[in-house]
């Protein structure tokens, strides 16, 4: 399969879905019964948060794979996935307080479960880059990074439990319950489209960054070969 065409597909999907879903958010979905117009930030905040979780999970998954296969490409994938997870995460931490300010009247609610678990994970994975860039490139860096990313798998459920114990009050109820969705079909469709668009954007950025890193690596090798150094 052609690498180039595979990379273009998510870009095309994201480029179509996100503007389309944005139009739906502004013109089609009804106002939330409780929060009114401001609830519409939900269609940006929540899909991006889910995609961020997805990429952090993907990063941990590739870390496990690296420890099994010792294939440098898995280390690179793990790093790029966590990088995308943290980038999307910054966006979540930016939109979360805006929503909180409008609907709860304060920028940050320390009693809120999702927000705080996210913050802990964000801090944890930001430290991943500190670790990674304090070690010279090579198998050792890959191994240490993978070990740290692995610890994150345990941290997710533990943080959820901990924040749940510490939590005090409110949070909007879950979207989907056993007795069917609580929200209107139009809201669910818009949310689904935005989620698909955000995920496609994530994969597009992921593959672009990954390919860029691989090209860098190849360039480095070619330069060294040009200088007449021995290259593996």
């Amino acid at each position: 399969m052609n690498l180039r065409s595979l990379g273009a597909l998510p870009v095309a999907i994201a480029g179509t879905l996100i503007p389309f879903a944005l139009l739906l958010v502004v013109f089609w979905v009804p106002d939330d019964a409780d929060q009114g117009f401001s609830q519409r930030i939900f269609y940006l905040h929540v899909p991006v948060a889910l995609v961020s979780y997805l990429f952090l999970g993907l990063g941990a998954w590739y870390a496990v794979r690296y420890l099994r296969t010792r294939d440098p490409i898995d280390d690179l994938r793990s790093y790029v996935a966590i990088h995308q997870g943290v980038i999307f995460g910054s966006y979540v931490l930016l939109t979360g307080p805006i929503w909180a300010k409008v609907s709860w009247g304060q920028w940050w609610d320390w009693g809120d479960r999702q927000l705080n678990v996210f913050l802990i994970l964000f801090l944890f994975y930001s430290a991943y880059f500190m670790l990674r860039f304090s070690v010279d490139a090579g198998p050792r860096r890959a191994t240490l990074s993978a070990g740290y990313a692995l610890l994150g798998i345990g941290l997710v459920p533990l943080s959820f439990l901990a924040v749940r114990i510490a939590e005090t009050v409110i949070h909007p109820t879950p979207l989907i319950r056993a007795d069917g969705p609580q929200i209107e079909a139009s809201m669910l469709v818009t949310f689904g489209l935005m989620l698909a668009g955000a995920a496609a954007l994530g994969f597009a950025l992921f593959s672009v960054e990954l390919r860029g890193k691989l090209i860098d690596e190849r360039m480095r090798r070619l330069r060294r070969r040009l200088r007449g150094e021995a290259v593996l």
Binding site: I120, A127, Y148, L155, S159, L161, A162, V163
Partner: peptide, 14 residues
Amino acid sequence: PVLFLPAVTPLLIA
């Protein structure tokens, strides 16, 4: 400290 503190946050909360 940067690696350690986020990892033990759940412990402190509990």
